[in-house]
Simulated assay, not measured.
Amino acid sequence: MHRISDDYPSGRGYLAACTLGLPTIGTRDAVALDLERWAAGSASAADYSATVERARGHAATLLGAAAEQVAVGSQVSVFAGLVAASAAPGAEVLCIDGDFSSIVAPFLARGDLRVRHVPLDALADEIRSSTAIVSASLVQSATGEVLDAASVSRASRDAGALLMLDTTQATGWMPTDELDADVVVCHAYKWLSAPRGAAFAAFSDRAVAELTPHTAGWYSGQDPWASCYGPDLHLADGARRFDVSPAWHAWAGAEAALAFAASLDQRDVHVHDLALANAFRARLGLEASDSAIVTWPDADGCDLAALTAAGITASGRAGRARVAFHLWNDEEDVELAAAALGRTGALAATR
């Protein structure tokens, strides 16, 4: 029987999908083939464009959007910057206190916006009629906490606020195809296990109409090959107007990675990842959660050091140790991490 973990060349003890995903064998081979073709002089711009279009379709599937609603780019902060640049002077922007900088800094950098930071669990209640933009991560990078997106969406709609959600720490381990937001942004190098430098975003009709494509270039036309030169401005009718010319080699791997992710039942992935994360929480004496990311206080870094010494790849953020469980992990990874922290007794008690 084929196991999904067999699609990965390695993964034992790797608990860092929330930092950097691992490529499947297919993604690794796609990147290697691309380098070979490039070195041989057989790579072509037309082929890269076709690869990007296939990737756009896979990204659309993962976000529950049509391909025409999806823009491709390189970084989340670029898409967030478009939202920030289009805000009216003095507009109120609501963010989660301690959220990832890429969806906060573009608004602060404007200097003329009123940016408020509130606790994650208070976000929906803090949306007011004066709120113009809500910018939030669906899953918090530092803590792994999951936003009540439905409540935030309803409150944003009631207030007339434009809602931007960052799903970089969500898409790939939990379903993100039913989000109600104006802009949904995602970088694919974490849970989707693509090379870094491949990001995408889905735009609502409202967002397409209200946001200015400040990064417009040759790739922002409906047909990039017909919009290479001035003097005219060439803009696609839909979200493609926000395209940033793709880093071709990154997208060669991203297309394979996104195709793999889109082929999976994301609800099954969600169940798998959560089961492992909650099994590990039980070893630590923590309550079950709805996140595949497990974090706990580790101000002196001792727990992270213990995991590292045991050959486990983990991470630390904001004074907390952080591990993540994904497709290449199984119960043995839970046991290895628990043993590294001296929690074998807790492990035995759960059996």
Rank of each mutant, 00 (worst) to 15 (best):
D303T: 02
A261G: 01
P23H: 14
G217W: 00
V139K: 02
R240T: 05
R196W: 04
T295V: 09
C228E: 13
M164K: 09
R128A: 15
I312V: 15
G172C: 06
L113C: 09
A136N: 05
E335V: 15
R128E: 14
R317M: 09
L63W: 02
A40Q: 11
L63C: 04
W38C: 06
H249I: 07
A275V: 01
P119E: 06
G253I: 03
A346R: 09
D148Q: 01
A45I: 06
H2P: 15
A150R: 14
Q140G: 14
A348V: 10
N278P: 00
S135K: 06
D7C: 13
H2N: 13
Y8T: 10
T350F: 07
L336P: 04
F203T: 03
R317P: 00
T313S: 15
E178R: 13
A39M: 11
D303V: 02
A306I: 00
D112Y: 07
T131P: 12
T295L: 04
G13R: 04
M174Q: 10
Q169N: 13
T176H: 00
A275D: 10
D47Q: 14
E68T: 15
G11H: 07
I103W: 01
Q222K: 11
T19K: 02
A67Y: 11
D265P: 05
I96N: 01
R240S: 12
A199M: 10
F200I: 08
S193T: 10
A216R: 12
S101T: 15
A91C: 04
D177Y: 01
F242R: 09
H187R: 11
